[in-house]
């Protein structure tokens, strides 16, 4: 059994690196990534699980890091946009498709798309793509460009 009280040091596996961080059990994964590890790609947008700007990948699935405690991530594999190293097909696809304007929601969308491809190596039907991407909000684009980016991601590999 695990019991964490006060401030504790936990081990997190983030972007292929092992990190030890001192956290309060009530600290959110989002805050720990941003404020302690300096991984600020994941953004606070609503802190309520509604906008998806803080989406990261946990064991290959998308997770909104504002609705997860950092202590829950122990023993799991966390991936953020920084861990994509600029080489994930979705990153180039987003550039080529003009799939962002202000860029604030971009990291979250990138991680959802990357997780989509991780779970569905072949392009799924449009309704599956929609279902996954409906977890995120973009206020600048009309979403058409983001759809195009998902297609480019699948076509590029």
């Amino acid at each position: 059994m695990v019991k964490y009280e006060g401030k504790v040091v936990i081990a997190l596996q983030v972007n292929g690196e092992a990190h030890e961080v001192a956290v309060r059990p009530s600290d959110l994964l989002l805050d720990v990534l941003r404020e302690q590890l300096g991984l600020t790609a994941a953004k606070p947008g609503c802190l309520n699980g509604d906008c998806g700007a803080c989406t990261i990948m946990l064991d290959g699935w998308p997770v909104k890091s504002c609705l997860m405690l950092a202590v829950e991530a122990e023993g799991h594999v966390v991936l953020t946009v920084e861990g994509l190293n600029g080489t994930a097909p979705i990153q180039k696809a987003f550039v080529d498709a003009d799939a962002f304007q202000c860029g604030y929601c971009t990291s979250g969308f990138l991680m959802v798309c990357h997780a989509l491809k991780t779970q569905n190596p072949l392009m799924p039907k449009e309704n599956i793509i929609e279902e996954w991407l409906q977890s995120n909000l973009c206020r600048c684009t009309g979403y058409q460009e983001i759809r195009r980016a998902v297609r480019l991601m699948y076509e590029s590999t």
């Binding site: 019991k3 964490y4 059990p25």
Partner: peptide, 13 residues
């Protein structure tokens, strides 16, 4: 951000 702290238990049974 949760303003207060709590104790976190992760029991195995």
């Amino acid at each position: 951000m949760i303003p207060f702290n709590f104790i976190y238990y992760r029991p195995d049974s």
